[in-house]
Design a protein around this nucleic acid. Structure first.
Lengths: 213, 213, 213, 213
DNA sequence: TATGAATGAGTGTTCATTCAT
DNA sequence: GATGAATGAACACTCATTCAT
């Protein structure tokens, strides 16, 4: 009656599978119609359940949504913390970018959800920012290492640069995988990843720029 | 019965001012709470009107929202079409970026609205994409001119590059001005603009990269 | 301010013409969509007026409707009181029926209105019943005269017969002119009138029926 | 999204009984006040339900109304198709008329509803016309058989006659049972039925009319 | 005489949520 | 664990009506 902390863990296998079915159904529906346009009964119907069943597993739609987002961001966080390959800068960036795009595409439903809700839901914003931070930190560190080895301009503010470069990847992925922006579809994901790596590496690389000649 | 297309144009000054008041109130409320959390009566109350008054001027909340977004994007479109200064590449990018950030900050309420809704509302997506396209075209052309003058690498795919660079600016602006992301606030807008211009120019500039040495 | 009895009589010619325009527009709209589906603004729009103008001439929609119905029924009442031709019974009935159908067709909009509203509006029912009564009286008297001359069965209850015969004409007219019932359209109005007169005259006529032989 | 055609069929007995309660309550209210003056909350209140419950069983007021009318007309249709007694013409007509009046009186609420709405609702008109058609066909056939046996004038257009005679019965019933027209109440239903049968039989019977002597 | 802006009560409808079965 | 009936607050939207201009 009065238990209200944390998420409900069903004791039986049947219960656990039902809970998963709800999450699965919700993910698909959110992707199709957006959070605002999905009713709880839509979810239960899609999961082949009665309306009442929902409340055995979640308090409300928001709780379910938060759980979904937390899960994907936790995975992304791990992803961001995995060791960076000690290859050449451009290869390294390329590999990372490709993996990132793969991950983003696979979870596009939830990334879309996140972007629909960050402005409105402080908790969504918070978990997202936290994950971003870990990405930015990772990029920033990588840039610092590059600077030490003379591969990266040493006058570069690695923090801002990391934010900018991260933004570029994330927004490109958002537009491509979530919005399906036609303009971007002219090029393959791989071409985009390659261009991105080039711009990135050049953007921060040490060299004799002629740009302002 | 008969399709009423286009928007209602009040014949009297009083009507016109009321219509504007509604738009103003709505913009503010959308910014504060997000589209999904604003009721029509919230808008009319904020505009000091009775609920019914809304429907004299708009069919529904969506129509109003679309008009707001269309307007700001039309302005942005003009902005994107204004001639690019024939200065040095980096100065040019810097100036443009600053102006873009200014514009974005000033209209952050509506850009936020747009990002909340693109996934859900096809018409929002469409007008936004169209505006983006004009930005991308502009950037792309500018890169081509740069390549002809030897300022920009000639092996660069200017279209993808334009999309990537545009993405970087837009998402940075979104995170900074709409979400108010703390991580970004460590640096001033001007620093960000400067870094962005540098990364950008270097990213595409002709030079002797040492990155892969 | 406090004048509230009877209907408003506009002092100026312009006012009078506007009042008529409203009545005209209302009649047409009621015919097209039925009373329940006509808004006051529909009427004023059709009459090329602003919503407020309506209230200069009528208290509300019901008052206007009642006036329209009263007018047509007053005319019908006069029609019912006009002297019956002293011709042969069948010719007389035929002529009357034809005239009745003509009148009904011409005013089908208002007869339809009446039938939509009698169940609901006691005043409509009352004025209609009164008019019917005068029709029934007339038919009844005519039957009595016929009986005196040996043209009509003398065992006939002329009152009930009058009601039945009146019902037949009125409902036929309603179905044909108001509802436009397709089934009835197979025959011309004239054929229907002729058949009606025959059935009628035979139905009440003195004769040696073989029906129950 | 997907068109939900047909009516909702509650899976449990409780649901079925609630659905019936709504229909019952609606029928009574429509009879009392007319369709236009019955709110959905009036119905749910009368059925001892909350407003929302209505929508579990019906899409809107119109759907409910259509179902009620369809049901009564389906029953009437069966009634009209039941075999005609092979008695003397007048007895046969009398018996049928009495049964028809009984049926009409019993369902006066819905016949009233029908007449309020035929002008406005094309679907109501359609189902009504169809039922009428079956009545007319039946009368027409009966007249044809009578003509073959010499009981009915052979110069009679049985189709028009059937329409006229049907109209007479139907409208009489409408005025008497739905409107409760005072003028008609002077005579008992039985007297009316008898007179109607007489007029009817004489109206179409073979005989030596003196009417035009 | 006419306009059109504004009102606000009234109503239909949705949907998260509860609960008896 | 699951159902589905029922609730009722919330909200969108309509439209008769008033009134300053």
């Amino acid at each position: 009656m009065t238990e209200e902390s944390g998420q409900f863990s069903p004791p039986t296998p049947k219960g656990r599978s039902t809970r998963e079915r709800i999450k699965q159904a919700a993910t698909e529906l959110f992707a199709e119609r957006g959070y605002a346009n999905v009713r709880i009964t839509d979810i239960t119907t899609a999961a082949d359940l009665s309306p009442g069943a929902f409340y055995r597993y979640f308090d409300d739609r928001r709780e379910l949504m938060l759980e979904l987002i937390r899960e994907v961001l936790a995975e992304a966080y791990e992803f961001a913390r995995s060791p960076m390959d000690e290859q050449s800068l451009i290869t390294s960036v390329l590999v990372t970018t490709r993996r990132y795009f793969e991950f983003y595409e696979q979870h596009r439903a939830l990334f879309g959800l996140m972007l629909e809700l960050t402005q409105t839901d402080a908790e969504v914003a918070e978990v997202w920012f936290e994950t971003q931070r870990s990405f930015y930190v990772r990029i920033s560190r990588s840039l610092q290492r590059g600077a030490q080895r003379g591969l990266v301009r040493d006058d570069l503010d690695t923090e801002v640069a990391a934010q900018l470069l991260g933004s570029m990847s994330e927004f490109y992925a958002y537009q491509r995988f979530v919005l399906g922006s036609e303009a971007l579809l002219k090029f393959s994901v791989d071409e985009a990843a390659r261009s991105l790596a080039e711009v990135w590496v050049n953007g921060v690389g040490a060299h004799d720029a002629k740009a302002d000649a």
